[in-house]
Design a protein around this nucleic acid. Sequence first.
DNA 1: AATGCTATCAACCGCCGATGA
DNA 2: TTCATCGGCGGTTGATAGCAT
Length: 364
Amino acid sequence: MSGGGEELKKGPWTPAEDAILVEHVRRHGEGNWNAVRRHSRLARCGKSCRLRWANHLRPNLKKGSFSADEELVILRLHAQLGNKWARIATQLPGRTDNEIKNYWNTRLKRRQRAGLPIYPPELQEAVRFDRHHQQQHQAPISPRPLTPPPLLNPVAFHPPPPISLPPLPQNPFACQLGFGFLISPLAPPPTPTSLFQQQQQHQIGPPPPAFAVETELPSCQSFSGLIGGDNGQSSSGLLESLLQGTGVAEDMRIGELLALQAADEQGARWTQVFVDDGDEGIKEASQCCSLGSATNLDRHRGTEIKCEPPGGGSPMKGDTSTLLDVQALTMSLLLKGDASLPITSADEDCDISSWPWSNMPGIR
DNA sequence: AATGCTATCAACCGCCGATGA
DNA sequence: TTCATCGGCGGTTGATAGCAT
């Protein structure tokens, strides 16, 4: 660091310092934060300037408590991504990663103290489903190279032909965990209106989502990356076992399922697409459990149980596998909603709230 | 009114990846 | 190729406010 020898100030920012920083950004734009000190009298390090600007001074910041919708988005995305605050923040305009992180940590602490699961029990059911599914389908881990599921591989994916379906009642749970903005922030989540229009054209629920997968974020977390880059060999976890277990047909299902996620509010309709494929677990998918709102999500109570994560082994170990586990978990949740699955004794000891959600390994 | 607890917010710290010399 | 620098991210901590006892 080129010091300059001056003592750098720490602690709360004063209005005068804010004004200097704002003026600097107005003149020179964002970035080059270490230059702030050179160009102005501000005795703050570049990091501190960046943080102050990003969290408090930049325009269009939204202050105040989170709305119910925002809370729901956080819940969804955290279930999906873990502690990826910056990524979550990209889906909440005007909110900062710091804000979201603070909110989540508070929520986490509150629920832990209350003895509540971090996620609603429906997610825990999904764990059981995954374990069951793995026992049913999991061949010994084969070294066969993993092919990214079609939707995760924009080149390979071809959307399924339109299927005409009778209208179904909405699937509230798919709505709640729809991840409608998963694929790319460049493609805004479908609105009920846009979906309706597209259905009118195609007589099917959601369209294939935009496949701007690689453009999602500057970090390494595009889906193709999650699957293990070009050959996917580094991936592991539930998704991998799902893929390896049943091959291409399963790949397509997962691809379609991700489309389902992108479909958000039309999840039930797409769930129905899978009902006829002979999978008992999926047959009942159209009976997905009903949840009304984020508040309801919180209101559900799980039983005090504990378990190892799906796939066994140490809880949530590893980077990519962690994310994939969560991804597969939430995917299967959308498919399932099935209380009739056989529950093994091990299954009964399943409580994802005992996993280290709050300390998930980073994927940078 | 005093005290303790909890929630919230703001900021710092350390690590890591990207970039350029 | 190596090294220094920068910026971004997630974890953590300290200060303060609000509430209950």
